[in-house]
């Protein structure tokens, strides 16, 4: 498998269920050890952490945390042990929340948010780490059309206005039109760069659950 991402690109990982999209993603962010080969970054991960947005089901909504506290966790990436988040980190968290359009919900309970709002809060948390690469694992899974559009709008703005490199796994192929620079088709242990129009062909959509 050979895959290269250029700075400022917006790339989607596509492929059938069980093809290894999430596995590839988890390898890229360091959650899985690579058995063979290497993954290289053109930035220092210690000073420029990866912004990671997990599937929202991975997080326990019963934790007594406000939206602001969750976003503040993004700033922990750059904070050493024993240093608590200060005024600068709180401001950064508030700005990140504003960027995803949810500044008004800062004091709401994280667990009380809708699926779409939760995803945008997790994007804000990733932004609070001030990343150069934003990696998202199925950010539009289980959210309605309106929320999907809102999430993609946020990601598009971050990519175009701030030059953030975005890599995401999704099954919602059609929402990528006009947004993604390229798609990477993952199947049978291979990752192949393709044009989005090729993937949007009806025959391919048959093997992408939710893609039609």
């Amino acid at each position: 498998m050979d895959l290269e991402l250029a700075p400022g690109e917006f790339v989607a990982l596509l492929g059938p269920n069980g093809a290894g999209k999430t596995t590839l993603l988890r390898g890229i962010v360091g959650l899985l050890s690579v058995l063979a080969g290497t993954i290289d970054y053109d930035f220092d991960r210690a000073t420029s952490p990866i912004g990671y947005v997990p599937q929202r089901e991975a997080l326990d909504p019963t934790f007594p945390l406000t939206v602001h506290e969750v976003v503040l966790m993004g700033t922990y990436a750059r904070l050493p042990a024993l240093r608590r988040p200060g005024r600068a980190e709180r401001r950064l968290a508030a700005e990140s929340l504003d960027l995803v359009g949810l500044g008004a919900l800062a004091e709401e309970r994280f667990g009380s948010l809708s699926g779409g709002q939760t995803q945008r809060v997790l994007i804000a948390r990733a932004l609070a780490a001030q990343p150069r690469l934003l990696v998202l694992d199925e950010p539009t899974a289980g959210v309605d059309t309106e929320a999907t559009a809102a999430i993609m709008k946020v990601l598009t703005r971050l990519n175009r206005d701030q030059g953030l490199t975005v890599l995401l796994v999704t099954h919602h192929v059609r929402v990528l039109r006009g947004i993604a620079n390229a798609v990477v088709w993952v199947q049978d242990g291979r990752a192949t760069r393709r044009r989005l129009d090729d993937v949007l062909a009806p025959a391919e959509l048959d093997v992408v659950p939710g893609g039609a």
């Binding site: 360091g30 952490p49 997990p54 966790m73 990436a77």
Partner: peptide
């Protein structure tokens, strides 16, 4: 961080 989001803690190194 390790209690709420173990994976994020790993990603942050």
């Amino acid at each position: 961080l390790v209690s709420f989001d173990h994976d994020l803690a790993v990603v942050f190194g």
